[in-house]
């Protein structure tokens, strides 16, 4: 199986689990019980957490927020990054110089630290986290698109279009964009992986989606305190993050650029 197919299988499995979480578990993710911190058994496959909630149910339901945040952030990153990259790459010259400086400045700042700062100010909510992670990720998309646009701009078929009377308004959507679409798709998947990982890191540091909504990063954080009593409480959400990020990473890096 190719990298791409492996990634796709993992993503489909995670999406399926998150989407049909209520059907796959017998417990609601916020339903507390009297048996708290129980180790895994037949009734609770991953045991229960400190409030007696079923860990499996919370891991499955938590996938929804992670996927929404990951895909949403990648979408925001592309909405900003693709036009910026196309503009810089196609126009060249002074526009390119300034755009590149801004991109490099943003890339130089560590994404997690920047996201941490902004989240601390704005407060965590799904929408905020999507916007913030999208904002942190757009320069990578822009830089990649810029490089490709720069190359394709010099292609003979672009000159042929100009010879037929095309201007930038025609050439960019008709010729440049279709030819960078593959690269954008690959970078989209990589950005999803990055955003899920970073949002989990934020949650782990206490800036995740407010409780009681299940959230992988936050679950890992709490699970860490009870690692010796119910190891599955921290390990299961960690594995979920790992599998999801791996899936998107494989898809993104396996897609022809």
């Amino acid at each position: 199986m190719t990298r791409r197919a492996c990634g796709l299988v993992l993503i489909l499995a995670v999406t399926f689990a998150a989407l049909f979480a209520p059907l796959l578990t017998a417990y609601a993710p916020t339903q507390t019980g009297v048996f708290f911190l129980a180790p895994p058994d037949a009734a609770h496959w991953f045991g229960t957490d400190d409030l007696g909630r079923d860990v499996l149910s919370r891991v499955l339901h938590g996938g929804r927020a992670s996927l929404v945040i990951g895909v949403g952030a990648a979408f925001v990153a592309c909405v900003i990054g693709v036009p910026a990259g196309l503009l810089a790459g196609y126009c060249g010259g002074r526009v390119d110089l300034w755009a590149t400086q801004v991109m490099n400045l943003c890339i130089a700042l560590p994404g997690l630290v920047l996201a941490l700062l902004i989240t601390a100010v704005t407060g965590p909510s799904v929408l905020n986290i999507v916007l913030i992670l999208g904002f942190v990720s757009w320069p990578r998309v822009a830089r990649l698109v810029r490089g490709q646009a720069f190359l394709i701009r010099e292609a003979l078929f672009v000159e042929a279009a100009r010879a037929a009377g095309a201007d930038a308004v025609w050439i960019v959507p008709m010729h440049i964009l279709p030819n960078v679409a593959g690269v954008i798709a690959a970078q989209f998947a990589l950005t999803v992986a990055y955003a899920i990982f970073t949002s989990s890191s934020l949650s782990f540091l206490g800036l995740g989606i407010p409780p009681p909504s299940p959230d992988w990063g936050g679950m890992v954080r709490t699970g860490l305190d009870y690692l010796s009593i119910n190891p599955a409480m921290g390990l299961a959400p960690s594995a979920a993050v790992g599998i999801t990020v791996l899936g998107f990473y494989l898809l993104g890096s396996g897609t022809r650029g």
């Binding site: 003979l156 000159e159 037929a164 008709m174 010729h175």
Partner: peptide, 24 residues
């Protein structure tokens, strides 16, 4: 301003591979 001229004057390039957009 060049559009009317572009209709009248066309080009055939040497490289038939590069002068066609692979996505079109």
């Amino acid at each position: 301003g060049l559009r009317p001229f572009r209709r009248q004057a066309q080009i055939v390039f040497q490289d038939p591979i590069g002068s066609l957009d692979p996505t079109m």
